[in-house]
Amino acid sequence: MSLTINLIGGALIALIIWWFWLSRSGQQKAAAATEEATIVVDAGVYTPSVVHARAGKPLTLHFDRRDPSPCAEQVVFHGLEVSEFLETGKTTTVRLNDLPPGEYRFTCQMQMYQGRLLVD
Protein backbone atom coordinates (compact mmCIF):
# COMPACT_ATOMS: atom_id res chain seq x y z
CA MET A 1 0.00 0.00 0.00
CA SER A 2 2.69 2.40 1.06
CA LEU A 3 4.70 1.70 -2.08
CA THR A 4 1.63 2.21 -4.28
CA ILE A 5 0.83 5.59 -2.73
CA ASN A 6 4.46 6.73 -3.17
CA LEU A 7 4.48 5.47 -6.74
CA ILE A 8 1.23 7.32 -7.48
CA GLY A 9 2.70 10.50 -5.97
CA GLY A 10 5.88 10.14 -8.03
CA ALA A 11 3.88 9.48 -11.17
CA LEU A 12 1.76 12.59 -10.56
CA ILE A 13 4.86 14.72 -10.18
CA ALA A 14 6.31 13.29 -13.39
CA LEU A 15 3.01 13.98 -15.12
CA ILE A 16 2.98 17.60 -13.96
CA ILE A 17 6.54 18.14 -15.16
CA TRP A 18 5.81 16.50 -18.46
CA TRP A 19 2.45 18.15 -19.15
CA PHE A 20 3.16 21.70 -18.03
CA TRP A 21 6.79 22.02 -19.05
CA LEU A 22 8.15 19.35 -21.32
CA SER A 23 5.29 18.68 -23.71
CA ARG A 24 4.65 22.36 -24.35
CA SER A 25 7.27 22.67 -27.07
CA GLY A 26 5.62 19.98 -29.14
CA GLN A 27 2.33 21.77 -28.99
CA GLN A 28 3.82 24.98 -30.26
CA LYS A 29 4.97 23.68 -33.59
CA ALA A 30 1.44 22.85 -34.59
CA ALA A 31 0.29 26.41 -35.29
CA ALA A 32 0.57 27.61 -38.87
CA ALA A 33 2.21 30.96 -39.62
CA THR A 34 -0.26 33.80 -39.88
CA GLU A 35 -0.46 37.56 -40.28
CA GLU A 36 -3.74 38.02 -38.49
CA ALA A 37 -5.47 36.12 -35.73
CA THR A 38 -8.34 36.52 -33.33
CA ILE A 39 -7.64 35.43 -29.78
CA VAL A 40 -10.51 34.81 -27.41
CA VAL A 41 -9.77 35.83 -23.83
CA ASP A 42 -12.00 33.76 -21.62
CA ALA A 43 -12.02 31.44 -18.62
CA GLY A 44 -8.35 31.92 -17.83
CA VAL A 45 -6.97 31.03 -21.24
CA TYR A 46 -6.16 32.63 -24.55
CA THR A 47 -7.65 30.63 -27.39
CA PRO A 48 -5.57 30.00 -29.40
CA SER A 49 -2.70 30.34 -26.98
CA VAL A 50 0.03 29.87 -29.54
CA VAL A 51 0.43 32.21 -32.49
CA HIS A 52 2.99 31.59 -35.15
CA ALA A 53 4.15 34.61 -37.16
CA ARG A 54 6.74 35.39 -39.77
CA ALA A 55 9.70 37.58 -38.89
CA GLY A 56 9.66 41.04 -40.45
CA LYS A 57 5.98 40.78 -41.40
CA PRO A 58 3.29 42.76 -39.63
CA LEU A 59 1.10 40.78 -37.28
CA THR A 60 -2.39 41.84 -36.29
CA LEU A 61 -3.97 40.25 -33.27
CA HIS A 62 -7.59 40.83 -32.32
CA PHE A 63 -8.20 40.14 -28.65
CA ASP A 64 -11.82 39.31 -27.96
CA ARG A 65 -12.16 39.69 -24.20
CA ARG A 66 -15.12 37.84 -22.77
CA ASP A 67 -13.89 37.39 -19.22
CA PRO A 68 -14.90 40.34 -17.04
CA SER A 69 -12.49 39.44 -14.25
CA PRO A 70 -9.73 42.01 -13.83
CA CYS A 71 -7.09 39.38 -14.57
CA ALA A 72 -7.97 39.59 -18.24
CA GLU A 73 -7.75 43.36 -18.30
CA GLN A 74 -4.40 43.74 -19.98
CA VAL A 75 -2.27 41.78 -22.38
CA VAL A 76 1.49 42.19 -22.09
CA PHE A 77 3.96 41.01 -24.71
CA HIS A 78 7.15 40.23 -22.85
CA GLY A 79 10.34 41.29 -24.57
CA LEU A 80 8.50 43.50 -27.05
CA GLU A 81 7.55 46.37 -24.74
CA VAL A 82 4.00 46.13 -26.02
CA SER A 83 0.89 46.02 -23.91
CA GLU A 84 -2.74 46.81 -24.40
CA PHE A 85 -5.81 47.20 -22.25
CA LEU A 86 -8.66 44.97 -23.31
CA GLU A 87 -12.24 46.03 -22.87
CA THR A 88 -14.77 43.47 -21.78
CA GLY A 89 -17.17 42.38 -24.49
CA LYS A 90 -15.12 44.08 -27.17
CA THR A 91 -12.38 43.23 -29.59
CA THR A 92 -9.14 45.11 -29.15
CA THR A 93 -6.60 45.08 -31.94
CA VAL A 94 -2.89 44.89 -31.29
CA ARG A 95 -0.53 45.48 -34.17
CA LEU A 96 3.03 44.27 -34.10
CA ASN A 97 5.40 45.32 -36.82
CA ASP A 98 8.80 44.04 -37.87
CA LEU A 99 8.96 41.30 -35.31
CA PRO A 100 12.43 39.95 -34.76
CA PRO A 101 12.62 36.15 -34.80
CA GLY A 102 12.23 34.50 -31.45
CA GLU A 103 9.72 33.30 -28.95
CA TYR A 104 7.74 35.84 -26.97
CA ARG A 105 5.30 35.22 -24.18
CA PHE A 106 2.12 37.21 -23.99
CA THR A 107 0.29 37.12 -20.71
CA CYS A 108 -2.07 39.04 -18.53
CA GLN A 109 -0.48 41.24 -15.89
CA MET A 110 -0.22 38.47 -13.38
CA GLN A 111 0.64 35.81 -15.90
CA MET A 112 -2.35 33.62 -15.31
CA TYR A 113 -3.38 34.00 -18.91
CA GLN A 114 -0.47 32.68 -20.92
CA GLY A 115 0.19 32.65 -24.61
CA ARG A 116 3.18 32.26 -26.84
CA LEU A 117 4.12 34.13 -29.95
CA LEU A 118 6.55 32.24 -32.18
CA VAL A 119 8.30 34.30 -34.81
CA ASP A 120 10.53 32.73 -37.42
Partner: peptide, 19 residues
Protein backbone atom coordinates in the same frame (compact mmCIF):
# COMPACT_ATOMS: atom_id res chain seq x y z
CA UNK B 1 -17.85 26.98 -11.62
CA UNK B 2 -15.46 29.55 -13.13
CA UNK B 3 -12.52 28.10 -11.23
CA UNK B 4 -13.15 24.63 -12.55
CA UNK B 5 -13.79 25.73 -16.13
CA UNK B 6 -10.71 27.95 -16.06
CA UNK B 7 -8.60 25.17 -14.61
CA UNK B 8 -9.75 22.69 -17.22
CA UNK B 9 -9.24 25.05 -20.13
CA UNK B 10 -5.81 26.00 -18.88
CA UNK B 11 -4.93 22.34 -18.39
CA UNK B 12 -5.83 21.55 -21.98
CA UNK B 13 -3.49 24.34 -23.05
CA UNK B 14 -0.67 22.92 -20.93
CA UNK B 15 -1.07 25.91 -18.63
CA UNK B 16 -1.77 26.10 -14.96
CA UNK B 17 -3.08 29.17 -13.19
CA UNK B 18 -4.71 30.31 -10.00
CA UNK B 19 -7.92 28.56 -11.00
Amino acid sequence: RHFFIGAWKAFRNHNANMD
